[in-house]
Nucleic acid binder design. Structure first.
Lengths: 210, 210
DNA sequence: GTCTATACACTGATAGAC
DNA sequence: GTCTATCAGTGTATAGAC
């Protein structure tokens, strides 16, 4: 595999388009058009064709996420106070902030639409990378919180992976929320996600009043 | 439009396949094969072709959801106690239970992959139906809770639509969680979603201990 | 209601010139 | 590195027989 600047451009454009519209909906012509070259020219950079291109940029993106998530989370853990609520808040916000800084993942589309279009072996590999890159770093935040012994009794028994999946899905879904629902206290994606994380940590109801 | 049993079968199969794999990934041949007929025969039942078929079954599914959600939510509200936490828990669980009883929505895939493939007018119409059928009934649960005046101060300011979108995304994401993460207290989708809803309502941390 | 046959466009992919 | 030319395969859609 040749590693040139031109090839990088191809991968970047392909990653953006695939992540925006999915595997089946993006044609090689779409990618070539966006690059200002002809469809056949793509095969110079990616001789193994469309599926290999998709697998490569997806894999690359997932690893970038793993790196970015681990970095942001451990940096947040280092600076936050030691109270468990504060720790979680800092780490979850850092993770969410990272996710929002990147092209959308559309994990559920990847599972339901993209994967079935790929050869089984390729799909299996991507699924495993997604699990290791996204699920593990996020689930660790919740696992760590559960070990602190300071969670609500019921909450401590919730699978960390369940919370991690929920967080992922929630952050991604924010991207599709119309701007009309940005209210006073939350006029940006970041502040919306911060509100959401506070709900995860402290709940909706006022337990002292009820 | 002819309304026969045979046509119903076509719509049902099409709805299932589209909802499983998305617009672009499902071909008319796939649908015909699943019905045991030839691709061209579909045009007897759906003369306007693939896009119209997708629009019809999607619209139909969304209206079914609206009806089902409104029913389950108001039934739950009637039987639950009056404490706001209890009310929300009952209504949210009823809504989630309904969502899990139906074919997956994959709303985010619909937004990012399916919609861009459709004529703008068709896409606009579907988006509006989705909003009215899903968003409004769910957001009303949170709106009602906020009006009770018994939510956490910060939580009362969170846009109901934000919470509704989060709930939707979370419930749908549960479908893709591997079974290995079904833990002791939550061995079914329903019990997982119940845990999740309790987190929304009461939070993760024990506020009396911290 | 379902079929065969077919038109027509598009897609992924290969070969070879420059 | 990018192009033109081309092909086989597949997708939607139409026409007309049964």
């Amino acid at each position: 595999m040749i590693e040139t600047e031109a090839r990088e451009r191809v991968l970047n454009v392909a990653e953006r388009l695939f992540s925006e519209r999915g595997y089946a909906a993006v044609t090689l012509r779409d990618i070539a058009d966006a690059l200002g070259i002809k469809q056949a020219s793509l095969y110079y950079h990616v001789p193994q064709g469309k599926q290999a291109l998709f697998a490569e940029v997806t894999e690359r993106g997932l690893h970038r996420h793993q790196h970015g998530l681990e970095q942001s989370i451990s940096a947040a853990a280092a600076t936050a106070g030691s109270a468990i609520g504060e720790q979680m808040r800092a780490q979850l916000n850092a993770a969410a902030h990272w996710l929002l800084s990147q092209p959308p993942l559309n994990l559920s589309r990847m599972t339901t639409s993209d994967m079935p279009e790929l050869d089984q072996e390729v799909a299996r590999q991507l699924e495993q990378t997604a699990y290791q890159s996204l699920m593990i770093p996020l689930a660790n935040i919740f696992r760590q919180a559960a070990h602190s012994g300071k969670l609500r009794r019921d909450a401590a028994g919730v699978a960390p992976e369940l919370m991690a999946g929920t967080l992922l899905a929630s952050v991604e879904s924010l991207r599709h929320l119309r701007e009309e629902y940005f209210t006073r206290g939350a006029s940006t994606r970041e502040s919306q996600v911060a509100q959401l994380i506070d709900v995860f940590i402290y709940g909706l109801v006022d337990q002292h009043q009820e």
